[in-house]
Computed example of a mutant assay.
Amino acid sequence: MLDVLEAFLVSGEELHGFAVAKAAGKPTGSIYPILARLEQAGWLDSHWETEHPKEGRPRRRFYVLTSNGAQEARSVIMERRGKLPSPAVEQPRPRPEFGFLTRWTGA
């Protein structure tokens, strides 16, 4: 459960179940029961994907920490692990040195 909570704290955004499993490094079969328990406890909110998925892929259910869930998650992780996970920080893309190169690199 701690790995799942950390995945949400690090991302800072809503995640679908497979993304949570990937971020937590756990199989989906163990992730979905945890997500259900966290939602039932009021730590997560969820909603189904509203747009039509690509052919061959089922609709995804997205989960997000509630404000209370985020507070509780931080508290539990501090208690159990002694430190909070670092939030994901997007690294800036390197820019070309010469302006004319942007046309060729797509930047």
Rank of each mutant, 00 (worst) to 15 (best):
W104C: 11
G29T: 11
L44A: 08
G69H: 01
G106Y: 03
Y63D: 00
V64G: 05
I77F: 00
G106T: 02
K26R: 10
K54W: 15
E49G: 11
E55C: 09
T66I: 05
E55V: 14
R81E: 12
R80C: 13
S67G: 05
L15G: 00
P87Q: 08
E55D: 11
P27S: 01
P85C: 09
Q91N: 13
W104L: 15
N68T: 13
G17C: 05
R60S: 04
E97K: 03
T66W: 03
I77Y: 00
E79W: 07
T105E: 07
A23R: 05
F98N: 12
P27W: 09
V10T: 08
F62M: 07
P58H: 09
L101H: 07
N68C: 10
P33R: 14
G69I: 03
W48P: 13
A21E: 00
T28A: 14
F100D: 12
R103I: 10
F98I: 06
E39S: 11
I34G: 00
F100R: 08
M1N: 08
D45M: 10
L38E: 04
K22D: 05
V89Q: 10
P58M: 07
L2V: 12
R59L: 13
G25V: 01
V10A: 06
E79I: 07
R74C: 04
